[in-house]
Amino acid sequence: MAAESDNEMEMLPAAGPIVQTAKDFKSDQMVRWCPGCGDFAILATVQKVLPTLNIPREKIVFISGIGCSSRFPYYMNTFGFHTIHGRAPTIATGLKGSNPDLQVWVVTGDGDGLSIGGNHLIHALRRNVDIKILLFNNRIYGLTKGQYSPTSELGKKTKSSPMGSVDAPINPIALALASEESFVARAVDTDLPFLGEVLTRAAKHKGSAFIEIFQNCIVFNDGAWESVAAKDAREEKMMKVAHGKPMIFGAKKDKGIVLNGLEPEVVSFDPANPPKNLLVHDEKAPSATLANFLAHMAEPVPQGVFRDVQRPALHELMDGQIAQAKKEKPADLQKLLKGPETWTVAA
C-alpha cells in the first residue's frame, strides 16, 4: 500500500509527531443528541481515530448540512461549519479546493446526503474531491420527527406515510460506485473497533472517501438495523470483506460466498477445509463490478471497504493547471488590464 504511505508522509508536519488525545478533539459544547442515539458512539470513535492520524487539530475541518448527524461539528474542537440542508459537499469542495492543506470531513445523513443533497454528493464523488464523507444512515428523518427517508423500506409506516411508504429506497453504496467514487466503505455503529479501522483507512485515502454508517435512531426508528447489526445477529447476517481474502462469514467462519451464474450463493463448509471456489475480495479492481456485486448483496450484508482505487483528486488537477499557467505566462496585472489591443489618445 505504497500510495497510502506516501499520503501519510504528506500529512506529516516538519516538526515530527504531534501529541494529541481524544480529549483534545472534544469541544466545550454540550452534546444534545437523544440519550441512546447511535451518533454518540460514532462521535467517540472519530475522536479516538483523529489523534492517531498525526494531523494537527487546526488543520482538520468538519462540515455538515442539516439533520441530527449534522450537529456533529459543534462537538468537535476542530474548525467546523454547520451549513444548510444537503449542501455540505459543496462547501467542503470550496474549502478543500482552495486550501488543500486541510483535512476535510463531511458529516451527513440519509436525508441530507441522499435526498435534498443527492446531486451534490454524486458530483463531489465523481470529482474525487479529497473529503471524507460519513453518511449516517438511520433510514428516517429524525430532526423533523419521523418521516420516511430515501433509504426507508418500501411500505415503511411513518408519520408522513401512515399506510406505508410508496417510494423504493436508494442504495447508498451503489450510488457512490456509480459516481466512480475512489473509496467506498460501510460500517455499523454497534461495532466500534471495526468502524475505527474503516475511518482510519478513509482518512488516509488520497481522494474522496465515502462511508455509509448504519446508525440507530432510538426515538423514531429504533431497531433500524437490528436484524443485521445487533450484536447477536451480526456475525451471521453481516460479512466483513477484506482485500485479497475469501468472502467468509459466520460466528464459526463456516459460511462463504460463491458465484452462481452472476448471483451470489451462500455455501456452508467445515472451517478447517473451506472450498476453493470462494469469491476473493479485490477492492483495488480497476472496474467496480465486484464492488457493485457486493453493494447489492442483501444477505449477508457486506461491511468493510468495497472499493479503494487511486485517481487524481480535484485539488491536484486544479493546482496543476495553476502551476502550469504561472509557468507559461507569469501574472502581470497591468498587462492584463491593458488587453490585446490599445490605442492612445494624445494630450
Binding site: 449542501r87 459543496t90 462547501i91 469542495t93 470550496g94 482552495s98
Partner: peptide, 17 residues
C-alpha cells in the same frame, strides 16, 4: 459547479478558507 447552489456553496467554503 453542478448547479447554482453548489456554485455559491463552494464560494462560501472558499470564503471560510
Amino acid at each position: 459547479a453542478e448547479d447554482e447552489i453548489a456554485a455559491i456553496g463552494s464560494a462560501i467554503g472558499a470564503a471560510f478558507a
